[in-house]
Write a protein that binds this DNA or RNA. Structure first.
Lengths: 213, 213
DNA sequence: CGATAACTTGAGAGGGTTCAACTATCGTGG
DNA sequence: CCACGATAGTTGAACCCTCTCAAGTTATCG
């Protein structure tokens, strides 16, 4: 189904908030994130996108794209032409099924993030997100021992967690001084995964049957 | 595709957190909500379900159901047998498309809720949710003038908004004393919708093309 | 090696939480 | 039909987690 490939530089906008009926992308390489902004500049990051994730489903199915997508690293995407979705469903039901799977999967991630932001303390939230990202990077074979690449700034963490930048920093330092994480030169290392998970009340399970990659 | 109809009483559990591979439901009548609980009892409501919404997609596509569903009012659902989803996609691509649409739509609601909980003040959050529910009830023709049925308790509001019960109450009273809302005997009335929307930085648009109902 | 972005740290303020008690409302059975 | 218990809503007061403001310090990159 691939029509073409496209590349975006780190920090560039993959998809603008307000775009309508754009193309659909599948993320092939790199990290990105989906976010929404309020009129006065407050930003909430909804979830992070790694290879295999889908971009732009909402803007295609629903009327307008409400969320922006920005690249964290250099990114390559596989482009589907706009309006290819319905023909795809008709011609290849199994691919349609996969798209639905990906949508449900992404919803699950947003769900989890909402639980964190709504009901967990700052310490728990940070732990949660770090475990989550670590696990995802690991499952994509990006890990080197128990350390994974980590292209987010503390600003991104703060905006994903619904915390202020300052408090995010303090919380990270606290986790580091507890010996539970290490964060340096763009890499994240989780020392005591079990105690981290206990701290955060983490109950993620591995995902099976992931389609499209 | 309907196999049978089933009924749940108000306050009863439609779907338990932890269920695996349950049936799929479509909500026909009544209100419900999706939630997730932490080990120590903290609860986060992810979104509210009204007629036309889908229940149990995640538990069916993914391995385990992570979110529970509880009825707010008496509820009727249309039951799809477990494992009917893939055959449905194959036999009726257009229904598969609709399922995807519903999933994307629900994700959009969770997205919005996450933005509120993460980045809006308590006053803005409450306003946001009330506008949202009012609009949804209205679009289902449940409105009587500018008032709609409102089966939630303040406890539900608090758990959806990531606020404490007490602060939710104070915030509601504040909105009432500002003359922007009225909440009594199970009905919600929005007085000054425009100013409420301005207060909350609300930018919802009407949804078109909703499938399945 | 200077500039710019990212990260740190201190101090004070405030939005929201918790604890606790009280009031209203609603459903039910005597 | 009223009394009573239970559930939902209301209010006060003290505390504290997190925010904001402000000023560094440390990386990173051309």
């Amino acid at each position: 189904m691939k029509t073409s490939e496209r590349h975006f530089a780190a920090q560039s906008t993959v998809r603008r908030q307000g775009d309508s009926r754009g193309e659909l992308f599948t993320l092939l390489r790199g990290w990105a994130f989906r976010y929404q902004m309020l009129a006065d500049g407050r930003r909430q990051i909804l979830n992070f996108l790694l290879p295999g994730d889908f971009v732009g489903l909402q803007g295609n199915l629903l009327e307008v794209e409400r969320t922006g997508v920005e690249a964290l690293t250099d990114v390559s995407v596989c482009v589907f032409p706009a309006d290819a979705l319905w023909p795809l469903f008709r011609a290849h039901p199994s691919l349609g099924f996969d798209v639905t799977w990906l949508c449900a999967h992404e919803k699950l991630m947003v769900d989890d993030n909402l639980v964190s932001v709504g009901r967990r303390s700052a310490l728990e939230r940070v732990a949660m997100l770090l475990i989550h990202l670590h696990k995802r990077a690991r499952s994509l074979a990006l890990a080197d021992g128990d350390s994974v690449p980590f292209p987010l700034t503390q600003h991104h963490l703060a905006d994903a967690l619904g915390l202020s930048l300052v408090h995010t920093n303090r919380t990270l330092r606290r986790l580091q001084s507890m010996g539970m994480i290490r964060l340096e030169r763009g890499r994240l290392t989780l020392g005591a995964l079990a105690s981290l998970q206990a701290l955060a009340d983490y109950h993620g399970r591995e995902l099976e049957n992931r389609p499209l990659i």
